[in-house]
Write a protein that binds this DNA or RNA. Sequence first.
DNA 1: GTTCCGATTTTCT
DNA 2: GAAAATCGGAACA
Length: 187
Amino acid sequence: MPLSRDFYERDAATVARGLLGKVLIKDGMSGTIVETEAYYGEDDPASHAFNGETERNRVMFGEPGRVYVYLCYGVYHLLNITTHSKGRPGAVLIRALEPREGLDEMKSNRGLRDKSQLTSGPGKLTQAMDIDLDQNGVDVTKEDAEIRIERGREVEEREIDKSSRIGISHGQDRQLRFFLRDSEYVS
DNA sequence: GTTCCGATTTTCT
DNA sequence: GAAAATCGGAACA
């Protein structure tokens, strides 16, 4: 059973923390989420929503629990899940996974054999799972959705570490990156 | 082992 | 015209 919409209809940092240990599923491939980042709206200069709604970031302004995919540096797709509520932009960037099922297909998609390199970064995991703009707007709370997120194991507070977000030039003061301290798959 | 650089596209100034 | 939520390969040590 996918997580319900209530799960996503909360503060972005709360959702980012809560997603650690959950399982991302697509096309028979799956992985445990081990690293996330929270993004807000008009008060967050690092967020795509900072300068208001555009065609690209529209889904961030819609209902929570949806996939927001966009192209980074014109090369890599990055996977986010929307949070907060309709009209209040927010999203969680999925930065890294620990591969669980469908390893052969992920290796094929990445052209790699090394398991630890399969999904240890936001651009890598979308390549491994074959995620691109086609998945933008998918509702991850639906049982038959192309991309789903289900309950994995419960994560203890002591397993979680946090830091500043990566690859941004503004808003580095806030500790909005969350990851499993001992995971080998963190970027 | 580390550091540097290019790819490529959307958005905003 | 520049910057952006990245990655992998090349160059060097």
